[in-house]
């Protein structure tokens, strides 16, 4: 159908996007890979030399790396569990007829549009602050000792903040999926005497499975790279109690000026992200065929 002429034109139209992305991918990646085998610190210019796997050895045997890896996993899994369970429950609730559906939808989706630095600072100061925060005021009202969230449970607090940001996303996607469910199928099941629980387990949940997978995969991509929320709330601390992999590499590269070490960490982060990415690509690729 397409002529030779139009094929050539098409190639011409696609090439700018392809070439730009190719450059964006290959140039920094090659540089990261190269630096990761160099002893290279911005504070000691002129001392660069090839060091083999030394940077990797230091990075991978650093206790901070294991802590950061664990925190990254806790952060990703914690937020995923909260947003998926909460998202399914919220979607089920909002899918029913009630007055003011449009407005409630708008209220629920709102946190997703708040920039990360704002949501983290609002939670840190106005809610979690042990002296003037809203939770402290409530605790004092009931005669309780205010809890210093970001000092006592830094990672859990960050999980809470990030969950608040992503719950709307999960809810919106699950709600969209739920609304495409065949109502007749549900009615038929009800007529056959299926209770609410079995209707949920055998009809709704399988229907939602695909949307849940999509939510898990997309959120994981973003959650692996949580940065701003940590930077403005805890700076990764106390100690390294809330340092994830992204933050650890940031500290090493831009605060300690260790280009070599930071690059080795970057390569490790890329490998980990790729493992997740492979699953996501397969999922979306399948969809493209259908």
């Amino acid at each position: 159908m397409a002529t030779k002429h139009s094929r050539a034109a098409a190639r011409l139209m696609i090439s700018p996007a392809v070439l730009l992305l190719l450059g964006w991918m290959i140039v920094p990646l090659a540089m990261t890979l190269y630096f990761s085998f160099q002893r290279y610190n911005l504070l000691m210019p002129g001392m660069e030399e090839f060091t083999g796997f030394t940077n990797y050895r230091f990075f991978l045997t650093d206790p901070a790396f294991f802590a950061a890896l664990l925190h990254t996993l806790q952060l990703v899994l914690g937020v995923l569990v909260i947003t998926i369970v909460g998202g399914v429950l919220l979607a089920l609730l909002l899918d029913q007829p009630f007055w003011g559906q449009g407005i409630v939808r708008i209220l629920v989706i709102a946190p997703f549009f708040v920039m990360p630095t704002v949501s983290a600072l609002v939670w840190k100061n106005m809610f979690l602050n042990p002296v003037n925060g809203l939770f402290a005021h409530i605790a004092k009202f009931f005669g309780l000792q205010p809890y210093d969230f970001l000092a006592q449970a830094p990672l859990a607090s960050i999980i809470g903040i990030v969950s608040w940001q992503w719950l709307p996303f999960a809810t919106l996607i699950l709600l969209t999926a739920l609304q495409s469910l065949d109502q007749e199928q549900l009615e038929a099941a009800e007529m056959d005497g299926a209770g609410p629980m079995s209707r949920f387990t055998y009809i709704m949940l399988p229907h939602l499975a695909r949307a849940i997978t999509v939510v898990i995969l997309i959120q994981t991509i973003f959650l692996l790279s949580v940065f701003a929320e940590i930077l403005v709330t805890t700076n990764g601390g106390p100690g390294t109690a809330s340092t994830n992999l992204t933050y650890l590499i940031y500290v090493q590269s831009l605060l300690q000026f260790d280009v070599g070490g930071g690059s080795a960490g970057g390569v490790v982060a890329i490998i980990l992200a790729n493992i997740v990415a492979i699953f996501l690509m397969r999922m979306i690729g399948k969809n493209l065929e259908s």
Partner: peptide, 26 residues
């Protein structure tokens, strides 16, 4: 076409911190 699309998507999976150092230096 499909491969190009999937490849474009895959660039999005590159964690930003992985290329922080080179980009900062550039």
């Amino acid at each position: 076409t499909k491969d190009v699309l999937m490849w474009m998507l895959s660039t999005k999976m590159l964690p930003p911190v992985g290329v922080l150092v080179p980009l900062y230096l550039i």
